[in-house]
Design a protein around this nucleic acid. Structure first.
Length: 436
RNA sequence: GGCCCCAUCGUCUAGCGGUUAGGAUCCAUGGUUUUCAUCCAUGUUACCGGAGUUCGAGUCUCCGUGGGGUCACCA
């Protein structure tokens, strides 16, 4: 069982998307189920509607899933598990206040050592719980730190050993009774029998904590972990919301298509890809998680542009034309010609749109354009560009650049562009509309 | 600062003890194109440093250095 567990606290991040794609891919390869779990336990940071937005993006990438759930629905289960740990003496009640902890934290910072929980509530008798509740004294529940080191045989990062002190006795239930991330995550993974976890490298230090929780809860099934190296921005820092390219929404707005984005994300850090341009279904055939490089990779927009163009080239003509509001194979073919000088849908749009918008009869060539417009309006339907060219030339008496420049302007709305002889056959059925 | 991870062209990477260190992208130049581009050809650019092991090290070991991640009652 695999899962994708995003939190609805912001725009879908490119790193999250990569995690989703990889989980889906591995689920397909292993013929296992793939579920979505929205991690909405932080009520304050949840943003209304982000969950559906995430689902829409998954839809666009055709990442089929078996079910969707919200983590908050499982709260009572988390509390039950916490009570079990408390009962078995594997967790304890802690009444340290935020202020007290803050003092310890600052002290640790001054001494330049890592902050660790003092352990001062560790031996509080569980019978006191009732008393605390009775008197309305706020408390949290902490799990006792492990007694031995924890080893994670990470599929990508290799064996990672963590000492008990690094895991620490951390909070699993907050003052308000809700579960913290690590606890909720471990419980839910356990409950849905998730045994293959692919996620970002930033979760590497959470892994021993979650392994510890599951062990204490008596879950013996071995979970395979794979931690993906993070994606860096141009400055070599972790991509954050500040980086435009980190937002999937932004990439869509820029005119990148899902197939290309998925291709790029799968290629990033991949050491054994048999080719550079491929689709997700193709990648399912050969992709190996173990072949992902251990080191972080920079996001390179130029490379994405290249891949996007290649995928645009592979699109069916009619489908491509629909991106510009047509259902005409010829317009798709026209767009492909313009792919010579464009890499994204929006760049393509900037080339195609001027062809179909009324022309500006001004500037150096205005007079010649007027002449040609009139000739075309009265001309019969002409099949080939050669005949068309001869016809206009003869009627107008123009030649050389005094002929080609204004003709190009009249037909395409641009001074430069692909060969008119290639464009003409594709737009001739719209000629009257265009040449005006 | 503690812990953990990483280190080959600007970028993504190949290399798994002996190579003229390869590919892709980007960039530059030339040719083709009555335009810009495409296309074709060509080219610039890389093994973080230092010890050690070895006949021989980008490749193995150690130590530096650099970069990154993470250290919450966030996820």
């Amino acid at each position: 069982m695999l899962r994708f567990a995003p939190s609805p606290t912001g725009d879908m991040h490119i790193g999250n998307l990569r995690v989703a794609i990889l989980n889906y891919l591995v689920a397909q390869q292993r013929h296992e189920r793939f579920i979505i779990r929205i991690e909405d336990t932080d009520k304050a940071r949840n943003i209304e509607g982000k969950d559906t937005e995430i689902m829409q993006i998954l839809e666009k990438f055709a990442l089929k899933h078996d079910s969707v759930s919200h983590q908050s629905e499982n709260l009572h289960m988390h509390q039950m598990f916490a009570a079990k740990l408390l009962e078995e003496g594997k967790a304890f009640v802690c009444t340290c206040t935020a202020e007290e902890l803050e003092i310890h934290r600052e002290k640790a910072k001054e001494q330049k050592i890592a902050y660790r929980y003092s352990g001062q509530c560790m031996d509080v008798d569980k019978k006191e719980l009732a008393l605390l509740k009775e008197n309305g004294i706020p408390f949290v529940v902490r799990i006792k730190k492990p007694s031995t080191q924890i080893i994670n045989h990470d599929l990508i990062k290799g064996d990672i050993v963590t000492s008990p002190n690094e895991v620490d006795s951390f909070v699993i239930l907050r003052t308000d009774g809700t579960s913290t991330y690590n606890f909720a995550c471990a419980c839910d993974d356990m409950l849905s029998d998730v045994d293959f976890i692919i996620r970002g490298e930033d979760h590497l230090s959470n892994t021993p904590k979650q392994m510890h929780i599951k062990t204490q809860l008596g879950f013996t099934k071995e979970t395979i972990y794979a931690h993906l190296p993070i994606i860096l921005n141009n400055e070599g820092k972790k991509m954050s919301k500040r980086d435009d390219a980190s937002s999937v929404k932004w990439l869509f707005e820029q005119g990148f298509i899902p197939d290309a984005i998925a291709n790029y994300l799968l290629l990033l850090g991949n050491t054994k890809a048999p080719k550079e341009i491929f689709t997700l279904p193709e990648a399912i055939e050969w992709f190996k998680l173990e072949d992902i490089s251990k080191s972080a990779a920079r996001f390179d927009l130029d490379k994405l542009r290249f891949i996007n163009r290649e995928h645009l080239k592979m699109m069916k003509d009619k489908a491509l034309s629909s991106l510009f509001g047509f259902a005409d194979e010829n317009i798709g073919k026209l767009a492909k010609i313009y792919l010579e000088e464009a890499s994204t849908i929006s760049e393509l749009e900037n080339k195609i749109k001027p062809i179909f918008t009324p022309k500006q009869f001004e500037g150096e060539w205005a007079e010649q354009m007027r002449i040609m417009e009139k000739i075309i309006a009265d001309a019969p339907m002409i099949d080939t560009f050669d005949e068309f060219k001869s016809y206009i030339m003869e009627k107008s008496g123009l030649k050389g650049k005094y002929f080609f420049k204004p003709l190009r302007l009249l037909l395409t709305g641009a001074e430069h562009g692909p060969e008119l002889s290639e464009i003409y056959p594709l737009i001739k059925s719209y000629l009257l509309e265009i040449a005006s």
